[in-house]
Amino acid sequence: MSPLASAGPAAQLRLLLRHRLATPIIFGLSLLPFCWLLYAAIFNQLGANPAEALVRATGDWSLRFLCLVLAVTPLRILSNTPALAIFRRMLGLFVYFYVVLHLLSYSWFDMSFDVAGIGRDIAKRPFILVGFSAFLLLTALALTSFNRAIRALGAKRWQLLHKSVYVVAALALLHFFWMRAGKNDFAEVAVYASILGVLLSLRLIKFIRPFVGLRSR
């Protein structure tokens, strides 16, 4: 009997995540939304308003991958699966990948790459300003997501910088809320707010627990 077959569910998950094919499989799965959008754009499968569909879909996938990234650490702790941490960086870069596609879709289809017009739109419309601020923060995180950046910044400064992912989450949710406010459509906003609220609460509990423990002694 193989070690995988004889192991319990948690041990099986750890063995699968350490398999040499785990990284390329997760990479391939993360690319599937892009492949579908590319296929749909080429073969006219995006509906009556393809431009709006692309802008909306890339934004939605950015939020979904952001939720996945923020879920990695709680899932790693709750399931006692340290190997999950291996994929956090890759998933974080996919957040940036889909955010870049989102920005490109807006810049191309809505603004025809009119840089001056984009600048005026950012200054004039709060939800675009908030979204662009999240993009700038994500750019800093993407550029410093490699081991060389950790050595250059030092572990403490690097960790402090990358905690701004929670600021990105708040800005992304606000961007989504304001965008849907114009159509008075808050159902999806509530779903993402609930997911991000739970994930951020788990992180907050982990942060304050040591201080509560010290006070109780």
Rank of each mutant, 00 (worst) to 15 (best):
S2P: 15
A5M: 11
S6R: 11
A7S: 14
G8K: 05
G8I: 05
G8R: 06
A10W: 06
A10G: 12
H19P: 02
H19L: 11
I26C: 02
F27E: 05
L31G: 06
C35P: 01
W36F: 07
W36G: 12
L38V: 11
A41F: 10
F43G: 08
Q45K: 15
L46R: 05
G47K: 13
A48Y: 06
A53G: 09
A57F: 06
G59V: 05
S62K: 04
S62H: 12
S62A: 15
L63D: 08
L68N: 00
V69W: 02
V69G: 02
L70N: 05
A71M: 07
V72E: 04
T73R: 01
T73P: 01
T73H: 01
L75D: 01
P82S: 12
P82E: 09
P82D: 07
R88Q: 08
R89T: 15
R89V: 09
M90F: 03
F94Q: 06
V95S: 10
Y96E: 04
F97N: 02
V99I: 07
V100Y: 00
L101R: 00
Y106Q: 02
Y106D: 01
S112M: 02
D114A: 03
D114M: 00
V115T: 13
A116M: 13
I118Y: 08
I118M: 12
G119W: 13
G119R: 13
R120C: 07
A123Q: 12
V130P: 03
G131K: 14
G131P: 08
F132N: 14
A134M: 09
A134Q: 12
A142K: 06
L143I: 15
L143G: 09
L143F: 14
T144L: 11
F146L: 12
N147T: 12
R151L: 14
A152P: 02
L153G: 10
A155G: 02
Q159R: 09
H162W: 03
H162L: 08
S164M: 11
V167L: 07
A169F: 01
A170I: 13
A170M: 05
L173M: 04
L174T: 03
L174I: 08
F176R: 03
A181R: 13
G182H: 12
D185S: 15
A187E: 11
E188K: 14
V191G: 08
Y192P: 02
A193M: 07
I195V: 15
V198M: 04
L200S: 09
L200N: 04
S201N: 08
S201A: 15
L202E: 03
L202Q: 07
L204W: 10
I205G: 12
K206R: 12
I208Q: 10
V212Y: 00
G213F: 08
R215W: 09
R215G: 15
S216V: 00
